[in-house]
Every structure is written in structure tokens, then in C-alpha cells.
Design a binder for these strands. Structure first.
Length: 572
RNA sequence: GGCCCCUUCGUCUAGUCAGGUCCAGGACACCAGGUUUUCAUCCUGGUAACAGGGGUUCGAAUCCCCUAGGGGUCACCA
């Protein structure tokens, strides 16, 4: 039996209301997991495109997959966008309110809207109920693959008589609705990639309403973009082929076609696709290289550990990953926007860097802010090729931004970061101590997190400090004609005298003292001092280090250190 | 595998649409020096690319064709 001819299209339906927007873009994430940097870049470009043209930027939540969507994730996306400095004119707000006249902005709340357009299609035979079971379809797919033939839906649903289709659907028999794709080539015009023609038959009769009554992505996106007057759809390149479906659907529904621009993907440095799985992979690699047979203390149970290791496809949850990373001393790769925040990257730097992956203003200009991006962003300069995400360069940009920051801004931002991610660290320090630390750390900080990671010595009880004899410690303390510890012995009396015990006074006195005692070589005393008060060879400039700790604690630490070093010197 | 897209230093890219000013520019990384009380910074210099092959042209990174490589997609997920 021949399939019935393709029916005529519905007459044009005006979906342009009174607004004369030249540019309406939208970011439409599905709320599962966290906002990925690739998604963040898409959002940023959408935002910039609209902002640069006095247009509107819409946030829409595509939660038609009921199994995977969550409200928490939707909120997380909003917070991540706001943190990046991306705001929207329409859509849900984190406080639960909604902006805009084209809502609702959660697809799960737009079901009647979809239904009315679905009915138009069904009535006009531009779509049809199909009663194939998943098993039947799977079998057909498998058969096609076995014959090395591309699978296309065979329109089995159309073999059922029209009246019967409607009757069975009305009777409640499980079914999907499929779109009757016209048998003709489809031309995709893309502002980034150019024009592409998909041969007739390439797009089959795809499902537009699932058995659970929810529209599929393809249908919802087309209806929503039209009803929200979206003029420019900027999205990831993985959607490129889907565009053909959206185009035919728009024609059938009588909607105008928005302009499309497909953005290339963002990859890892090794060329693999960047995904949340990378964190799990990093931990697996660390476990393997350490040859671990049981989980480190304080992480996960042996049972969970075995189950996880036994199933390569399984992934540890976030808390477990963090615990494992800490125990194994590995850094998890940052994948989500929230990861970068936690790692101490500045949002304006992340945006700047993300923009550079796929877009550039030309003229060898690299450093710019979101306002500049909005003013200058255009589709013609968007890169067609995927970009590998270079964390070293991002880190270098972050460093530059921190160095360029005024001292008090750095204090404030570092403090906010500390309160959020290192509360126990902040509790242990007085305001004065923290400011001292921030000022001393700024010029060596690549991230806001650095100072919290490298200054644990400040929090330690004086009698808990220890001095592992590493190579640089041995060199500074024990080696040479006059070993460092003997110089340290001599400087104690001076330190006891210095008042006030502050940076300037310390610098003056110690420098003068080194003139005689160390042949003018401050390093001879600075390193032993640093090691004595911090337990290791690395800390902020020595005078700041001493001042932060205060005289009493310094002297206590030095005294204990001298005992240890004398012992080490005697036994070697 | 079918279909679609892409291809400039290790990486992100400028230059390609309007062929000469490009023996290809910048940034990060890397290498070599230098500054510095540790670390990190900072300064100076350097190595390094038009995927390959055919055309067109006085002239090609830029235009055309082929090959190779890479990516995307083929769900009742978005």
C-alpha cells in the first residue's frame, strides 16, 4: 500500500505580535546536572547577540524529559548564569518570580499550548498517531544495522486507517504522534556554517509527542521559539541536523523560520569531548595508578568502591568524587561553571576566555569584558571548528586579572570566596591577619583559591607544626659551612627585640642585621626563618609571613624548630 | 556505515568573503637568558603552522577539484 500523499501545509499563522524586535535569542537548557562550560558559552553568545542589538534574551527551561529534569538543576543554571554576569529579560528568576509576557517558561507548564498546535497537525494529516511498540522499533533498527542499511522509520503507522488511528488513540491505546515529513530535500541555512542540503528521505517521520503525552524536544522547541518570537537560534552544533526537522515543522505549522547559528563544541586538550564523566575518569586513573584495592579512609564504603570499580560505566556522585580527589591528592578537572567558581576563577575572566573559544574580535585583541562582547559580537566571526579548552591559558588570564585588581577589591573578593568555600579558614583568622594575607598573596595568586590552598601553616596550632626534611629544607637549614639553623639561633635575640612586630620594622631590622650576619645576603636568614615558622620552604614574603603570625607564635615555632634541626644536624 | 560539516604554530586564533603589503601576525604553552628573600610574578630573546596533491593565475593561506584526517548526527534525550 502506498503511503498517502503529503498533504498541503497549514496556512500561515502569524506568530509575530506587536513587538518589532530585531533580535530575540534564547538559552534553553534542559535542567539536568549543572551548567557546562560549553552551555555557558552558548548562553553568553546568545546574551551578547541580543544585548548588542537592543533585543531580548530569553531563558527557557526545557524540562520535557520528566525523568531527568529537576527544579534544583533549573535553579542551579540560573545562579550559574547570574554569576557569569549573564542576565535575561524573560524567564524564571532564582527568587521564584517570572519575567516576561511569553510565559510560562518551563516547558512542562506549556502542555496545552503544545496540544493545540499538535491537534492542528493531526487534523490536517500533517502528523499521525503511531502505535508501534518500542520493541518493534528496536527490532527494525537492529535489522537495519545488521544489513548495514541506514534506519528510517518505515511509516508503519500510516498503514492503519485514519479513522481507526483516531479511534484507537481516543480509546487510550498507548501511542506516539509522528510528523509526516515531506519527501523532499531540506535546505538548512546557517549563519555560521553556511548552507547545507539534506537529501529527501534523510529525515524520517520523527516523533513529536511521546507516549507519556509530553511533546518531544523538536516539537516543543519549534512551538516555543515561534510563540516567544525568537528570531535567532544559537545553539550547539550537535543540533545542526535537527534543524532540518525544525524547519519542516515550522513550515507545516505556518511559522516563520528563525535564523540559525550553530556553535562548535568545546573539547578537552586531548581532543576528547568535554563531559562531566571526565571527573570520574580522573579519579579512576588515580585509583589505578595508586594500585588501590580499597577506598581511602573517609571516602566511600568498600562495597560502593567495589561496585564502582567493577562497573566502568558507573560514576561516583559529586561528594564522593570530591572526597576521593582530596584523599588521593588529585585535582578534579573543572567542567561545570560551578567548578570554575570553586577553583577561584573570576567570572569575567571565564566569560572572556570562553568567548575566545569560537569567537574573536580580530585586531589581535584578546582581553575584553562582556560589555565589549555585546557591542562587537557577530555571527560572521564565529569559528566553525571545535576548540580545545586550554586551562593554562585561562589560568594565565586569571592571573593577569588578579594582578590588575586594586588591593581592596582583591581583599573583598578573596574574602567572599573564602567565606563561601573555606569557612573554617576564615574563622581561624582575624580581619587584620586576613588582610595581611590577602595583600601578601595577591601578586602570586593565579586564582582566588590559591591563598587558601597554600597557607595551611597559618591555621596550625604552634605545637602541631612539623618540619619534614625535604631537599630544599635540608639545603636551607643543614647544608653549608654555616648551616641555616645556626643563623636562626642567632636571629632569635633580634626578633625578641623588634617592636612593633610589623612588616616595615621587620624588614628594616632584619635587612640591617643581615648586612653583618649574612654578608648582606638576606636569603641566608629568610629561608631558615620561613621554614621555621611555616614548616616548609614556600610562603608569602618573609616579613609578611612573620607579621601575620605575630612575635609570640614566631618565637615559639622557631624554638621548636631549632630543637628538631639540632637533632637532625647531630644525627647526620 | 549513510547523511551533513570542518581543516593556519603544541593550543586559542588574525589573515580567507573583495588573490599581491604574509618567506604568515598575536596570545597561552615551551626553550634560553635576566630580575627576585622562597614560591609565584616580572623583563628580554627564541623555536614553532597555511593537512597532502592537482589545477586557475604574472602571482594563492586566500579561488576550483581530488585525497587524507577530524567532527556532528542517525532515540518515545535534549
Amino acid at each position: 500500500m502506498q503511503p498517502p500523499p503529503v498533504p498541503a501545509r497549514l496556512t500561515a499563522m502569524s506568530n509575530s505580535q506587536s513587538d518589532q524586535d530585531v533580535a530575540v535569542t534564547r538559552f534553553a537548557p534542559s535542567p539536568s546536572g549543572d551548567l557546562h562550560v560549553g552551555g555557558a558559552r552558548t548562553a553568553l553568545f546568545c546574551w551578547a547577540f541580543a544585548r548588542g542589538r537592543q533585543g531580548r534574551f530569553v531563558l527557557r527551561i526545557e524540562d520535557t524529559d520528566r525523568k531527568r529534569s529537576s527544579d534544583a538543576a533549573a535553579l542551579g543554571f540560573q545562579e550559574a548564569l547570574l554569576w557569569l554576569g549573564i542576565d535575561w529579560d524573560e524567564g524564571p528568576m532564582p527568587d521564584g518570580s517570572t519575567r516576561g509576557d511569553h510565559g510560562p517558561y518551563f516547558q512542562s507548564e506549556r502542555l496545552e499550548l503544545y496540544q493545540s498546535h499538535m491537534d492542528r497537525l493531526l487534523e490536517a494529516d500533517l502528523a499521525y498517531h503511531a502505535f508501534d511498540s518500542s520493541e518493534e522499533l528496536d527490532a527494525k533498527r537492529a535489522a537495519a544495522r545488521a544489513e548495514k542499511r541506514p534506519y528510517r522509520y518505515d511509516r508503519a503507522g500510516l498503514q492503519v486507517d485514519r479513522q481507526e488511528r483516531f479511534a484507537r488513540a481516543a480509546a487510550g491505546e498507548p501511542h506516539v504522534v509522528r510528523f509526516r515529513t515531506p519527501d523532499e530535500p531540506i535546505t538548512i541555512k546557517d549563519e555560521v556554517l553556511g548552507e547545507a542540503v539534506l537529501p529527501a528521505g534523510e529525515v524520517d517521520d520523527f516523533v513529536i509527542r511521546k507516549a507519556d503525552g509530553y511533546p518531544t524536544y523538536h516539537f516543543a522547541v519549534v512551538v516555543d521559539d515561534a510563540l516567544m518570537n525568537v528570531t535567532h537560534v544559537l545553539r550547539a552544533q550537535e543540533h545542526f541536523n535537527n534543524t532540518a526537522k525544525h524547519l519542516v515543522l515550522q513550515s507545516a505549522l505556518g511559522f516563520e523560520h528563525p535564523a540559525y547559528g550553530h556553535l562548535s563544541l568545546i573539547f578537552n586538550p586531548d581532543g576528547s569531548k568535554m563531559s562531566k564523566r571526565d571527573k570520574d575518569k580522573a579519579i579512576r586513573a588515580a585509583v589505578k595508578s595508586a594500585g588501590l584495592a580499597s577506598p581511602p579512609d573517609g571516602t566511600i564504603t568498600q562495597e560502593a568502591f567495589d561496585a564502582w570499580l567493577g562497573d566502568k560505566k558507573s560514576q561516583l556522585d559529586h561528594d564522593a568524587l570530591v572526597a576521593m580527589a582530596q584523599a588521593l591528592d588529585v585535582t578534579l578537572p573543572e567542567i561545570n561553571v560551578a567548578d570554575f567558581e570553586r577553583s577561584g576563577y573570576l567570572p569575567e575572566v571565564l566569560c572572556n576566555f570562553l568567548s575566545l573559544n569560537g569567537w574573536s574580535p580580530g585586531n589581535d585583541l584578546e582581553k575584553f569584558d562582556n560589555a565589549f562582547l555585546a557591542r562587537n559580537f557577530d555571527l560572521s566571526r564565529v569559528q566553525k571548528t571545535p576548540a580545545r579548552f586550554d586551562r593554562d591559558k585561562l589560568l594565565a588570564f586569571n592571573l593577569d586579572a588578579i594582578q590588575a585588581m586594586p588591593e581592596d577589591e582583591f581583599r573583598a573578593r578573596a574574602r567572599a570566596h573564602g567565606m563561601r568555600f573555606h569557612p573554617q579558614f576564615m574563622d581561624a583568622l582575624t580581619t587584620e591577619q586576613f588582610d595581611l594575607l590577602a595583600d601578601a598573596s595577591r601578586e602570586r595568586s593565579k586564582t582566588l583559591d590559591d591563598m587558601f590552598k597554600t597557607n595551611g601553616w597559618l591555621l596550625l596550632e604552634d605545637d602541631r607544626l612539623s618540619w619534614p626534611i625535604s631537599k630544599p629544607v635540608r639545603k636551607a637549614m643543614l647544608k653549608g659551612e654555616t648551616p641555616g639553623w645556626t643563623i636562626l639561633q642567632q636571629v632569635v635575640a633580634l626578633l625578641e627585640r623588634i617592636e612593633p612586630f610589623e612588616g616595615a620594622a621587620l624588614e628594616r631590622e632584619l635587612t640591617e642585621w643581615a648586612e653583618d650576619a649574612c654578608d648582606g645576603n638576606l636569603g641566608k636568614i629568610a629561608q631558615p626563618l620561613r621554614i621555621a615558622v611555616t614548616g616548609g620552604p614556600v610562603s608569602p614574603p618573609i616579613f609578611d609571613t612573620l607579621a601575620m603570625l605575630g612575635k609570640e607564635r614566631c618565637l615559639l615555632r622557631i624554638a621548636r624548630c631549632l630543637e628538631v634541626m639540632e637533632g637532625a644536624a647531630a644525627s647526620s
